[in-house]
């Protein structure tokens, strides 16, 4: 078992289960901040699994979400992204401009924030799928710490704010209180930054933002500036973010969201002069482990040593589109026409849990993977939610699984780690961690 056959990986069952939401394992290493690399222009934050023992939010979860709930939320997230992509492509879903752009005669903030729902769809009550990883940032002067969802799939950073004029969901940490920060300021309606927002309004001269997700979740409030502390040695003065006074949706108990997309309001774009629009992340294999989120030139050094793939920017201003070209299973390139990947394109999204493939690509992957597993005699198991290729590994300590590699334009290759090939709901249900889109055009 110590020597897997060629093009196979050994999957340790012991390693798989700390990744489950029902884990009671302790944190491998407490989150810490540190400089790294040769360049001082790189700053590092710690990423932890939202439901793992390293998460500041973990203690708040009396009942961790089930695998079914996590996967259902992930399906909502994927559908939300499909919706945003498709509506942007057709023009139907272009960001709405608020009708409330009157200047000083605007109603009081409370009334504005309440009435703003007129331009928003009714909440379906479905989750955005807040992603499984969080980072902790400091906000204000003196800085208070907030645990926020880390999201490369959206732009505007926001936190729930005092006095929470309309409604806030329950969060683990105290609400951010602008009155306690000496560096807080609202962005004025006349400021160019206000126009950077996809959805904006005006109340009493103060810029209002709206962040609306495809599933009906949203945050509305004042667009503001304050000092954002990324680490103990690095802060961003005048960072523009949403001070949320009306926030609804299942955002877990996070204080808000850190937007890492490519739009004007995102953190990488706002800090372009400081970090050069460069950042990198690493997500830990186990929920008991820690990863990192780096900003700055040093974070790209390791990638430059390897092959990179072009970021395809013509498809829209927000998502990180890349060109997927193929899949290898057990070292063998699957026979999938290039058009299968090119038809709809591919994005990289830190907030989606399970990789979604065009139906034809998934079908080919599943067939090859299942054939390799059958050849080794592994017993199949019932599906788990959207995962349909599952195995019963009861009583096994290690399992040999075929390698899976995702190939991209320019020669970049993602040789998926064993922890990323399988999703373990239980020892008797360990599933191939990929799913198909409903339609080849999705």
């Amino acid at each position: 078992a110590r020597h897997p056959p060629p093009h196979h990986l050994m999957l340790s069952m012991e390693d798989m289960f700390p990744a489950g939401p029902s884990s009671s394992s302790s944190c491998d290493a407490p989150p810490r901040e540190h400089k790294h690399g040769a360049t001082s222009s790189t700053t590092r934050m710690t990423i932890v699994h939202r439901h793992g023992p390293c998460s500041p939010l973990a203690a708040a979860h009396r009942k961790p979400p089930s695998h079914g709930e996590i996967l259902a939320a992930d399906q909502n997230r994927a559908e939300s992204i499909q919706h945003r992509v498709s509506t942007t492509a057709t023009g139907r879903g272009k960001p709405k401009r608020s009708r409330r752009q009157q200047p000083s005669s605007a109603p009081a903030p409370a009334a504005s924030l309440s009435s703003s729902t007129a331009s928003l769809p009714a909440s379906s009550g479905r989750a955005l799928g807040t992603g499984n990883y969080v980072v902790t940032v400091g906000l204000g002067t003196p800085a208070s710490r907030y645990t926020v969802v880390f999201d490369t799939g959206s732009d505007t950073t926001w936190v729930q704010c005092q006095p929470c004029v309309v409604v806030c969901y329950e969060q683990r940490e105290k609400l951010f209180d602008p009155a306690r920060s000496s560096t807080y300021a609202n962005v004025s309606c006349a400021a160019p930054a206000c126009s950077d927002l996809n959805i904006h309004g005006c109340s009493g001269g103060h810029c209002l933002y709206g962040v609306q997700y495809g599933d009906g979740s949203y945050s509305i409030g004042f667009f503001a500036m304050d000092t954002l502390t990324l680490s103990s040695y690095d802060a961003v003065k005048g960072f523009r973010f949403g001070c949320g006074e009306r926030n609804e949706g299942l955002f877990g108990e996070a204080a808000g969201l850190l937007g890492l997309g490519r739009g004007k309001t995102s953190l990488p774009v706002q800090t372009y002069d400081k970090y050069g629009g460069v950042f990198a992340h690493c997500l830990p294999a186990r929920s008991t482990g820690t990863g990192y989120l780096d900003f700055g030139a040093g974070s790209l050094a390791a990638a430059r040593a390897r092959l990179t793939t072009p970021m395809l920017t013509e498809n829209g201003p927000t998502f990180y589109y890349v060109g997927m070209t193929g899949i290898r299973v057990g070292g063998q390139l699957l026979s999938i026409p290039q058009s299968v990947f090119a038809t709809a394109g591919t994005i990289v999204d830190s907030g989606t849990v399970i990789t979604r493939l065009p139906p034809a690509a998934y079908s080919s992957l599943r067939y090859a993977f299942a054939a390799a597993m059958a050849a080794r005699g592994y017993k199949k198991a019932p599906a788990v939610s959207l995962l349909d290729t599952c195995y019963d590994f009861t009583g096994m300590s290690q399992v040999a699984i075929p390698t899976v590699s995702l190939l991209f334009q320019g020669g970049a290759r993602l040789d998926v780690d064993a922890s990323g090939i399988m999703y373990a709901a239980s020892a008797s249900q360990v599933c191939l961690a990929f799913a198909a889109n409903e339609d080849g055009g999705d």
Binding site: Y272, H281, C282, Y292, P310, A344, T346
Partner: peptide, 30 residues
Amino acid sequence: VGIVGNTQLKTFGVAYDIGKKVVGFYPGAC
């Protein structure tokens, strides 16, 4: 649209350079 999700990105360094318009993957980063 296809989506590369976070499960498949585990342990990989994923680097984004908005100016140069590239995405890089490097294994064993954490």
